[in-house]
């Protein structure tokens, strides 16, 4: 039997293997990400050249604006401070004599007004985080005071599934 011809009958174009790496990498880079690398941002000509000067200028202005000649006004400050102190003492004495507004009352009304007039950007979860739930009593929610017994009676009579409320578990 005639042995097979060991000679390879296939041929590759000349220089194919030399060019192979180059072609492969070219293909790889073009097939890479679909996201462009160019962003399109531009900036004014010479911007970076003038930046240092602008910054030095700004720093200088910043430092200059901080220097306030205190000395020449010093004596007036003492006088003003004395006058203010006298005024505060007088006011405090006067307030103590005439009115008896407690801090709690003031704060309460201020807080209520604030809540009424401002729309709070708080979700119920955020509110829940700051509300002292453990210190809240049922009566805090109502203007009139209900006794706990009455409330339980009411729920008992008006709720179909009273047992499902699991009131005892939550105590």
């Amino acid at each position: 039997m005639k042995p097979f011809d060991k000679k390879n009958p296939f041929k590759a174009p000349e220089g194919y293997f030399e060019e192979f790496d180059k072609n492969l990498f070219k293909k790889l880079s073009s097939k890479g990400s679909a996201i462009p690398k160019k962003e399109g941002f531009k900036l004014p000509d010479g911007y970076f050249d003038s930046l240092s000067d602008k910054l030095q200028q700004k720093l200088k202005e910043d430092q200059q604006s901080k220097v306030i000649p205190l000395k020449s006004y010093k004596k007036y400050y003492y006088a003003a401070a004395t006058a203010a102190a006298v005024l505060i003492v007088a006011l405090v004495l006067n307030l103590n004599k005439t009115t008896e507004i407690s801090f709690d009352d003031l704060a309460q009304s201020d807080i209520e007004n604030y809540f009424n007039q401002n729309e709070l950007d708080l979700t119920s979860y955020e509110l829940a985080e700051v509300m002292p739930i453990s210190e809240l009593e049922m009566t805090d929610m109502f203007d009139s005071n209900f006794s706990e017994e009455n409330v339980l009676d009411y729920i008992n009579e008006n709720t179909d599934y009273f047992d499902e409320l699991n009131l005892e578990d939550n105590e």
Binding site: I35, P36, K38, E39, G40, F41, K42, P44
Partner: peptide, 14 residues
Amino acid sequence: DVYFEGEEIQLKLQ
């Protein structure tokens, strides 16, 4: 924006 090259693809990228 004058400091943005208004090519479609760049805008889409942003």
